[in-house]
């Protein structure tokens, strides 16, 4: 049973992170290498809420959303927007996000040290699993919440994008920024919102992570390839691709490793981070457009079939 919890919680969290990464990539064309930092900020919001403030961890969800969202927004406004105005290359933008990642790792470690020294709370490799509410039959609440968050996110984004005026403008701005601006849409607002949303979602993902796995600033480096892998497998263009890609990579990491342990022995567990990397390379070489491209191909085949 634990493997199902492990797999689905991890996969859901990863999918939420992939959605955020894809969102800012698609809307502002920035592959954000500091995305994990927002998630870890969320983790520490969970730790503070639970161990310092003595509240339920779930109270950290809005807090983490706001905190990570704001940091992300600030980063976008203070750095990315300025660089984009100067027409910096995508590689310069990537270096800027890497730099911000390093900066945030410093901030998060200082935060971790300060929590430990100020409140005598274990702040590295910590888990809040024991504070979680257990539902009937040993079902942890975080399991239900993780899946609910992912489903809610999928439905919510669908509603936002396809059922509201704001979403329509968002889609318009994504497709053709210049045209959107000449038609009176303030794309700056939409781009800023996408960074806030992306960071906020990562914050929520971080809270959920802390409720089941171990939280530590070093996760910023460890999990980043998984998020990229999930997003690329999903095609890096579609929100639903990102959800599917994230789930796929997350599940194959956990369940794939478990399966490999049965075959090769326990030592293989340590090589788990290689799985997302293989998924990413394989996708880029075989189907660079990811699952989204696959869907397009299938659609076209079907159309051809109908015509014939």
């Amino acid at each position: 049973m634990i493997i199902i919890y492990d797999g689905l919680i991890y996969a859901s969290v990863l999918a939420v992170l992939c959605v955020g990464l894809t969102l800012t990539y698609k809307i502002t064309s920035v592959p954000n290498f500091s995305h994990m930092a927002f998630a870890i900020l969320g983790m520490y919001m969970a730790l503070i809420t639970s161990k310092v403030l003595g509240l339920s961890v779930y109270a950290a969800l809005p807090l983490a959303f706001a905190a990570s969202g704001l940091v992300s927004l600030l980063f976008y406004l203070a750095v990315i927007r300025i660089l984009q105005k100067k027409k910096s290359s995508v590689i310069s933008l990537i270096i800027a996000t890497l730099a911000f990642d390093i900066f945030m790792i410093g901030v998060l470690n200082i935060l971790a040290d300060s929590i430990r020294n100020g409140f005598q709370v274990l702040s590295r490799d910590f888990t809040l699993r024991s504070t979680d509410i257990v539902l009937a039959d040993g079902l942890p609440l975080v399991f239900v919440v993780s899946i609910a968050v992912l489903v809610g996110l999928a439905l919510g984004l669908y509603y936002l994008l396809y059922r509201t005026n704001y979403g329509m403008r968002m889609r318009a701005s994504i497709e053709n920024e210049t045209l959107a601006r000449t038609l009176g849409i303030d794309t700056r607002l939409i781009f800023s919102m996408s960074w806030f949303l992306s960071g906020g979602l990562a914050g929520i993902a971080g809270v959920l992570m802390a409720l089941w796995f171990q939280g530590d600033p070093s996760l910023a480096m460890i999990m980043l390839p998984s998020i990229f892998a999930g997003s690329i497998v999903g095609g890096f263009t579609s929100i639903y691709g990102a959800i599917l890609g994230g789930l796929l990579v997350g599940l194959s990491e956990i369940i794939g490793t478990t399966a490999l342990v049965d075959v090769f022995g326990y030592w293989i567990v340590q090589y788990r981070p290689i799985i997302p990397f293989i998924a990413m390379i394989a996708t880029l070489l075989v189907l660079p457009g990811g699952l989204a491209q696959l869907v397009t191909i299938i659609r076209q085949r079907r159309l051809k079939g109908k015509n014939a």
Partner: peptide, 27 residues
């Protein structure tokens, strides 16, 4: 700013890419 020009009663049609391809006509 570009997005405020419309408020001054001016509209612009670009040579290419002047409609949103993925949106429906009504959208």
């Amino acid at each position: 700013p570009t997005h405020d020009i419309l408020k001054h009663g001016i509209s612009y049609m670009a040579q290419r890419k002047n409609v949103f391809q993925e949106l429906t006509l009504l959208e």
